[in-house]
């Protein structure tokens, strides 16, 4: 009998508690600066979010999100400039449409759409960045680790 197998994945446990891996794609002009500001202002943010800087949130191709999940992320955060602030004018509108569609498809794939989160964080919103990282980490903790079936 063939049995269902899950992808080999290291599940992060700290003192027996699940510590999610979250990939955060932050746009260079707003959200990354916001995260930076949180750092220099000594505002704590959740270490679970591994930050990847992109030039614009619109640069985050859906395949990046899918690949992050494939490679072991339990959650994916995408953060960009508020509407009207995108350095490339409309990049964040594309992002918004893309994430809405991604959520539909993730649901159909049987993956909880709450594992994907979109936020608008400006360069001055260090507090917001910090809050989002903690909230999202808590959210993923309640969802548990993402295990992908291969066979």
């Amino acid at each position: 009998m063939e049995t269902k197998q899950t992808l080999k994945k290291e599940i992060n446990l700290k003192d027996g508690v699940f510590e999610p891996k979250i990939v955060g794609f932050l746009c260079n002009w707003c959200s990354y600066s916001g995260a930076d500001l949180a750092g220099v202002s000594r505002i704590k943010s959740a270490p679970n979010v591994r930050i990847i800087r992109t030039m614009c949130s619109g640069r985050v191709d859906p395949s990046f999100i899918i690949k992050a999940f494939e490679l072991g992320a339990d959650g994916v955060l995408i953060a960009g400039c508020h509407f009207g602030d995108c350095h490339y004018l409309e990049g964040n509108f594309k992002t918004m449409r893309r994430i809405e569609m991604m959520k539909l498809v993730l649901k159909q794939f049987g993956i909880d759409a709450r594992r994907l989160r979109l936020e608008w964080i400006s360069a001055s919103e260090a507090e917001k960045f910090s809050k989002v990282t903690f909230e999202f980490t808590e959210q993923i903790k309640t969802l548990g680790p993402l295990r992908l079936i291969k066979n």
Binding site: K4, S63, I66, V105, Q108, G110, I111, R115, R147, I149
Partner: peptide
């Protein structure tokens, strides 16, 4: 959407199948 976007390539897509684990 899933069946339309992946009509021919669900098995070769990154996720390969619908995940029932989540």
């Amino acid at each position: 959407p899933l069946g339309t976007f992946y009509r021919f390539s669900l098995a070769s897509s990154t996720f390969k199948r619908v995940q029932f684990s989540d």
